[in-house]
Simulated assay, not measured.
Amino acid sequence: MKKLFIDLFSGAGGLSCGLEMSGFKCLLGIDQDKTAIETFKLNHKYAQAIAGDIRKISTESIKELIGNQKVSLICGGPPCQGFSTIGQNNKEDERNFLFWEFVRFVEAFKPNYILMENVTGLLAKKNEHTLKTIIKCFTNLGYTIDVKVLSAHHYGVPEKRRRTIFLGNKFGVANIYPEQLFKNSEKESTNLPLPRTVDWAFRNLCEVNGRVFNHDLDSAQIPNEIEKKRLQFIPEGKSVRYKKDELAYLPKELWFDVDWKNLHEERFREAKLNRLSRNSCSGTINTNRTSYYHPIENRYLTAREAAAIQSFPPDYIFCGSLNQQWRQIGNAVPPLLAKAIGEAILKLDQCKDLMEKTLSIQDVSSIRATAFSYRENVDEHQFIQLKLF
């Protein structure tokens, strides 16, 4: 029988999609974005879905909704920016209440496992108090919590997207993280294959049964004529960020009207005219459809192409306007990353009785030093854990 989970802050359901690929079954998704929940319901037909403010949703009502079914996992990505770093932590701070709602659900349902994802900046030194608070909250509820930064391109996603992943279990053993499946580049001596590419995404994750969803080419056209003219000169995989790029790619009549020497660090803050390369993985897909351009066509990506790069299956349909589709896609956890994490949790579930109990042995500095190490595979007997006091 498949283990059941609840997805808090589910968005369009990228995390749920990947966990179901791994062998879990989704019971419920909750998100305040009504359009994202429409997408979630459309693609998770056997799960319940609630669009609303999680603060106003009682755990009693959820228990009544799902009946006596055992929740094995609670997952989600609550914002954690609002924790105070000076003085006493304020649970009433409106910027961090959603984290406490996550804790409330964990306390009520007592799942065997928890999975929480967040931005990599959460491990920055300035957020040390936040980090300790998160671990302490779950530890007080009886969970062994580990934290690691995972990069999506190591798990079959054709995109370099890094997320902080908290894993917790109620069995007092080290959590297992997925082993790396793809290497970074040809320079690495490992026998692992190279990362999947944008071309792989377009060839494998755009069309299903002769149909392509969310692929409006008209809306992917560039309305600004100067921008479109400039893009015609940008080679595949290139962009303009420095003066040398402008000189290399653009004719003088299409140069940007900027004084390069007076720009901070003599560069654009973000690269402009950023064409993807078919032969490598993409940078992080975000909610702004103008961040990247098609590798060889003079246009933006379509929502389907962005979803393919995020590793969504080609039959995963997004609801709403074009901007709403992009917001859902850009905010999602890549399904293939979630699949790898789900498989690691299920692996732990099978071997937990044979594993030794663990203690908190590392301090925050040690965590920060090792959390961004991507080259080492995660052994099931290794763990990363914070010292709370």
Rank of each mutant, 00 (worst) to 15 (best):
Y292N: 11
R304Y: 07
E297M: 06
N288A: 05
V333W: 04
R289N: 12
F312I: 07
L337G: 01
A303V: 03
L336W: 03
Y293V: 10
P334G: 00
Y292T: 04
I309T: 02
R299H: 05
Q325K: 15
P295A: 02
P334R: 05
G320T: 04
P313I: 03
R304G: 00
E305F: 08
A332S: 15
R289L: 09
G320L: 00
Y316S: 13
R327V: 02
N298I: 11
L322V: 13
D315C: 04
R289V: 00
Q328E: 14
A332W: 04
Y316C: 14
Q324D: 11
I317P: 12
S321N: 11
P295N: 12
Q325S: 08
Y316W: 13
F318T: 10
S321I: 06
H294L: 06
R327W: 00
P335K: 14
R299D: 01
I309R: 03
S291W: 02
C319E: 12
S311G: 07
G320I: 01
Q324M: 06
C319K: 15
V333S: 08
C319M: 14
P334H: 02
N323P: 00
L301V: 07
P314C: 07
N323C: 03
G330Y: 11
L337K: 06
A332Q: 09
F312T: 03
R304F: 05
P313W: 08
F318I: 10
N288F: 02
W326P: 04
P334I: 00
L301R: 03
I296C: 08
C319W: 05
T290E: 13
P334S: 00
P295Y: 05
N288Y: 05
Y293G: 10
E305K: 07
Y316L: 14
I296S: 15
I309D: 01
L322P: 04
Q328V: 11
T302F: 12
P313Q: 10
L336Q: 03
L322K: 11
Q324L: 06
Q310S: 11
P314N: 03
D315E: 14
F312Q: 11
R304A: 02
S311A: 12
N323G: 01
P314H: 14
I329S: 13
S291Y: 13
T302M: 13
S291Q: 12
A307C: 12
I309K: 01
I309A: 02
H294P: 01
A306E: 14
R299Y: 06
S311P: 03
N323A: 12
F312H: 09
A308V: 10
D315W: 15
Y316K: 15
S321A: 08
P295T: 09
S291M: 15
P313C: 04
A307K: 11
L301H: 05
Q328G: 15
R299S: 00
G330D: 14
H294R: 02
Q324C: 01
L322H: 10
L301G: 10
L301Y: 07
R289H: 13
N288C: 08
E305C: 09
R304N: 01
N331I: 05
N331G: 09
H294F: 01
T290K: 15
R299L: 06
I317Q: 15
A332F: 09
